[in-house]
Write a protein that binds this DNA or RNA. Structure first.
Lengths: 267, 267
DNA sequence: AGCTAAACGAACATATTATAACATTTACAC
DNA sequence: GTGTAAATGTTATAATATGTTCGTTTAGCT
């Protein structure tokens, strides 16, 4: 009876919990088998395969026939509070549109943020570009891209945040000149003000726009009308503003009058 | 009777109490399911979802399909060709000796390298120090240390190497002043010359010594008598040289005449 | 090489869960 | 009581996860 209850703990778990459990199996054993896990968690083998496929993307295992083993290469772990993606689809669509602005040979600046991180994913197959970023996540994403040179800005590592800020970042940024800067935002005021939830990030964002010839703000519609701690400028200072069509047309029209080219995407 | 009372305790609770209870579930299980909790607390699934949404904001958990799991730190992977540790014991002993040179409140520079990485491990419990480094491995190691502020230098990410180099790194380094710089070396010539196997690292090392009041070179005996591509200076430029006792005493005596304090450790 | 059993992946069908909007209940002040 | 706000429940629809089937690939064997 007791045994049964303990086993039950491993059943009827949400998929993410099951995947975490699978990962922990590697602490005990060097490898796992699909059939064994299927039995253990009382799900079909197909589900385990899908779990392993997810883990292969995220969690550094290597799939084999019949199971998986730990990845060979060594990892450096950086803290990253896995925030919930709020408008994942919109962010991806916005990133796709942003990708179209990029041409071969350009030097880009990529800000911290989930939307810019999505853009980084799409830039993996770019040719001969340089990406300057304060984000360890962006750097991690692009480090293997053959056509991309990654320059990480210096600075203080904020605890629990995968990015760099501070005076050093600002000084470091001043060393560069870029063609195009992509920035996220934690809020866009109805008057077009751009907000960050962190003062240091706001200062960095301001400098990014100065050292880049053109700049582009990426924000899904949920950010519009929101404010946050620090204002880093207004849409009058940027050249492109990309959002999704769920944003009120009247407000976008007002934003357009400030100067930036407004681009909207479907989802 | 007892059982009944315990079950009853879980029903008709104010929302905050229920949320606390949910949080405690994570101590027992790897994750919780919406349907299970709904049954357990005798409320609708929607209510549980709202509870989890609240708990998610408090940063403890992460919602998933079907339930929630504890927030997991996402790993940012940086390639790290795990080189074979040649004189692991000697390097650890050298790092222990280097650790003794560090005092609270100091600003340190830690170079790239396996020996300096060992030192980073020992610095985790230091109080109120600042570590400036071009090494992602060092930064990763120290990011959670409460008494350590980590400043990562900017620069180009070398493919397959966990460190930053290039003109940006050099400029960035110039922004700082430190009390003590710790450097590794790929070779120490019999004349006291310090060698790196990478030209860019050599330039960075040279600047490190300039911006630091004192400097310390860490190298096990196998490096003595070796040369490498780039010479970044000589032992006459450094204040401390730490190696292990397997190094020939005659050569160490000659090194001492150049100026640095020579420290040897047993293994 | 050729064979065989196991494992894989794609596509579809099904079941479960999430979200948003609205309806209802509860709690509490007055 | 009555009004109000917060919490909870309900429903329809969308999104996601899972199971199943089947043709293909793979590992291991002779």
């Amino acid at each position: 009876m007791n045994i049964r209850r303990q086993i039950t703990v491993l059943k009827n778990l949400p998929s993410a919990a099951r995947q975490t459990q699978i990962r922990e199996r590697f602490a005990e054993r060097p490898g796992v088998s699909v059939s064994g896990l299927a039995l253990e968690f009382d799900v079909s083998a197909m589900t385990i395969r899908r779990d392993l496929a997810v883990l292969e993307d995220q969690a550094h295992i290597q799939r084999t026939h019949g199971g998986a083993v730990l990845t060979q290469r060594m990892m450096l772990e950086f803290d990253y509070r896995g925030r919930r993606e709020n408008n994942g689809a919109a962010k991806k669509a916005i990133a796709r549109e942003a990708r179209k602005l990029v041409q071969s040979g350009q030097r880009l600046i990529l800000d911290t943020g989930t939307t810019t991180l999505e853009l980084a994913v799409l830039l993996k197959d770019a040719l001969n570009i340089t990406v300057i970023t304060p984000s360890l996540a962006v750097a991690s994403e692009l480090q293997h891209a053959p056509g991309v040179e990654v320059i990480l800005l210096g600075g203080v590592i904020r605890r629990g945040s995968p990015d760099l800020t501070g005076p050093a970042t600002e000084h470091c940024l001043e060393l560069f000149a870029a063609d195009l800067a992509f920035q996220g935002a934690d809020g866009i005021g109805l008057d077009g003000a751009i907000y960050n939830s962190d003062l240091r990030l706001a200062r960095v964002d301001k400098i990014m726009r100065r050292v880049a010839t053109q700049s582009c703000v990426l924000a899904d519609h949920s950010k519009i009308g929101q404010t946050a701690l620090a204002r880093n400028g207004t849409l009058a200072d940027v050249d492109f503003f990309i959002t999704n069509t769920a944003a009120p047309a009247a407000i976008l029209k007002r934003f357009a009058r400030l100067g930036p080219k407004i681009i909207t995407v479907k989802p």
